[in-house]
Amino acid sequence: MITNMGTYGFRFAEDKEISLCGLFAAGHEQALNEAYYWEGQLRNDGPLLLFQYTVTGEGIFESEGLTHRIGPRKAFLTEIPGSHRYYYPPDAEEPWEFYFSTDTYITAI
């Protein structure tokens, strides 16, 4: 089976001060190994909201001292930057396939 995956970015010409939120990027990806690792405090592409939905496999999402295994039909929502991390687990037995969207938002009105 051939699956086309990728990330698509969106850049709009509208005034950012007018919009409360907007689509920044969306994609369909497959993490295959431990190189897939995101540390929320180290990201400089925010402020963004990330929604990530698992299709197959599983990943790890850690936040506020809790560890969550995000398996099929499960998702997480988090702010970027933020005190969290998410990654491909070292004990994984299959790829982690997921869809995601990142959205811009106004942090204070």
Rank of each mutant, 00 (worst) to 15 (best):
F76C: 04
A92R: 11
T104Q: 06
E64T: 12
H68D: 06
Y88A: 02
F100Y: 15
I60E: 01
G65Y: 01
F100I: 10
F76I: 11
T104H: 13
Y105Q: 10
L66I: 14
D91E: 15
A75N: 13
R85Q: 15
R85D: 11
R69K: 14
A75L: 13
R69H: 13
Y105E: 05
I106W: 00
Y105W: 13
G82M: 09
S63K: 15
F98Q: 06
W96T: 08
D91F: 04
G57K: 08
S83Y: 09
E79Q: 15
H84M: 10
R73K: 15
E62A: 02
T104R: 14
L77K: 08
Y86V: 09
T67C: 03
I106C: 00
D103W: 15
T67H: 03
T104L: 03
G59V: 07
I80P: 01
G57V: 06
F76E: 11
E93P: 00
T104C: 00
T102P: 00
F98W: 08
P90M: 04
A92I: 08
L66T: 15
D91C: 01
T102F: 00
D91V: 06
I80D: 05
E97F: 02
G65L: 02
D103T: 15
P72L: 04
I80A: 00
R73F: 05
T67W: 01
L77G: 02
G71F: 02
I70Y: 06
E58P: 00
S101C: 10
H84L: 08
P89D: 08
R85G: 02
E58R: 12
Y86T: 12
G71M: 03
Y88I: 08
R69M: 03
E64R: 14
E58W: 11
G82S: 10
S101F: 08
E79A: 09
T56V: 05
G65H: 01
D103F: 07
R73C: 06
I80N: 08
E62K: 04
D91R: 05
T78Y: 03
S63N: 11
D103P: 00
R85N: 14
E97T: 15
G59L: 04
Y87Q: 07
F61I: 05
G65S: 01
P72H: 04
T56D: 14
W96V: 05
S63P: 00
Y87S: 03
S83G: 09
G82Y: 13
P81A: 08
F76H: 13
F98T: 10
S63G: 00
P95L: 04
E94N: 04
R69F: 03
E97K: 13
L77M: 10
I60C: 00
Y99S: 04
I80F: 09
E62Y: 02
R69D: 01
G71D: 05
I60H: 01
L77P: 02
K74M: 13
E79S: 12
S83H: 14
T104F: 07
P95R: 10
E93N: 09
D103S: 14
Y88V: 09
F76D: 11
G65Q: 01
G59Y: 06
T78K: 02
A75H: 14
P90I: 12
E93M: 04
I70M: 03
Y87T: 10
I80H: 05
S63C: 11
Y86R: 07
R73T: 13
I70W: 07
K74H: 14
I106E: 05
P90K: 13
G59I: 09
H84E: 08
P89T: 09
G82W: 12
Y99T: 11
